[in-house]
Design a protein around this nucleic acid. Structure first.
Length: 342
DNA sequence: AAATCGGGGAG
DNA sequence: CTCCCAGATTT
């Protein structure tokens, strides 16, 4: 693999991103800030660059250093993470910041091995931080690289079945500029070697790419057969008191939407049963909200009612003007909007 | 090894 | 609508 050609391509076509040190600045000796790289990498797990940008800017504005983030309450981190999804990332992010401060004096470990001992930092993220911040000669393998390499080698099995071989092959090609190389390969996958379109004419890997030679590069990577998404159904109950405040409560700390804020709901099951209202009220059906999770589709019937403010114990009452700042995941923002709030 | 865990942007 | 994104953790 022609790593030099990849780096030359990167020197001309690198994306300009808020957490990135440009190749020209890097050549002048500028180093990336491990805190900002770590934060961006966690946000970018299974999440697009477009979705991450505003969250990254908000987080670095509120918490410019790992000390600031470690000192913040978890609740504040969850509120700011609301809408980005995969909320275990936010809990692990905070735990990781605390660990870096308490166990490492606020200095991130400088090796992939050391980084991987921290919460929320796995094989990919540890390698990415070590390469980008410390130029460790390590293979950085994400979804982009899976696709680029599957095409380059015309891999005839799903990537998951050949992950170790791909990593070993990539490791043999990591150049001295390992951080720029990792970011270059990811940019390549995000732009010229995209999932549904491969621009082989401008690709630095084209001369030795087997998929390009075969003529239909988007055939790769081979997709594994995917299971169909089951449907779960339930009821959601939006309660307002005489002052117009909305009743909210916290979800359990682990599991789906763990630690986030919700309105009360029924269980979510395959067969919808009759609504069991949490309190007596003049309940009105406000229609349905559909929300798609990774492994099931959810259909919630939305109900609303004016209720006395003293019949409920576990949660709190929030004025509509404060809903924007609550740790409400997108699902429950849809529910509140369906009930005429937010 | 397989399941769990969000949401949105692109085509 | 489908696909999949700078994956980690739990079972």
């Amino acid at each position: 693999m022609d790593a030099a050609a990849v780096l030359a391509w990167y020197d001309r076509h690198a994306r300009d991103l808020p957490w990135r040190v440009s190749p020209s600045d890097r050549a002048r000796g500028v180093h990336a800030d491990p805190y900002r790289v770590w934060l961006s990498e966690v946000m970018l797990q299974q999440t697009t660059v477009a979705a991450v940008q505003k969250y990254f800017l908000r987080f670095t504005h509120l918490w410019p250093t790992v000390f600031d983030l470690a000192a913040a309450p978890l609740d504040a981190v969850l509120r700011e993470w609301a809408g980005l999804g995969y909320y275990a990332r936010a809990r692990n992010l905070h735990a990781c910041a605390v660990a870096v401060v308490e166990r490492h004096g606020g200095i991130f470990p400088q090796t992939s091995e050391g980084l991987q001992t921290l919460p929320g930092i796995g094989a990919y993220t540890s390698a990415a931080i070590a390469a980008i911040c410390f130029d460790e000669r390590i293979a950085v393998l994400d979804g982009n690289l899976d696709r680029v390499l599957a095409r380059y080698y015309a891999l005839d099995v799903p990537v998951r079945e050949a992950k170790d071989e791909l990593r070993a092959a990539l490791q043999q090609n990591v150049p001295e500029r390992s951080g720029d190389f990792a970011q270059a390969m990811m940019d390549l996958g995000a732009t010229t070697c995209a999932p549904r379109a491969a621009c082989c004419l401008i690709c630095p890997l084209q001369p030795d790419c087997r998929a390009a030679r075969e003529g239909e590069p988007v055939f790769y990577p081979i997709k594994p057969v995917k299971a169909e998404r089951p449907v779960r159904r339930g009821h959601a109950f939006v309660m307002t008191d005489a002052g117009g405040d909305v009743y909210l409560q916290s979800r359990p700390g682990k599991g789906l939407l763990g630690g986030m804020t919700e309105v009360p709901t029924s269980d979510w099951v395959s067969e919808l049963s009759e609504a069991a209202y949490p309190v007596v009220g003049n309940w009105r059906h406000r229609g349905q909200v559909v929300h798609v999770f990774t492994h099931f589709r959810l259909e919630l019937e939305v109900w609303s009612s004016l209720v006395p403010a003293d019949g409920l114990a576990n949660g709190w009452w929030s004025p509509p003007s404060a809903l924007k700042g609550e740790a409400l995941p997108t699902l429950f923002r849809k529910v509140l909007a369906q009930a005429g709030l937010g």
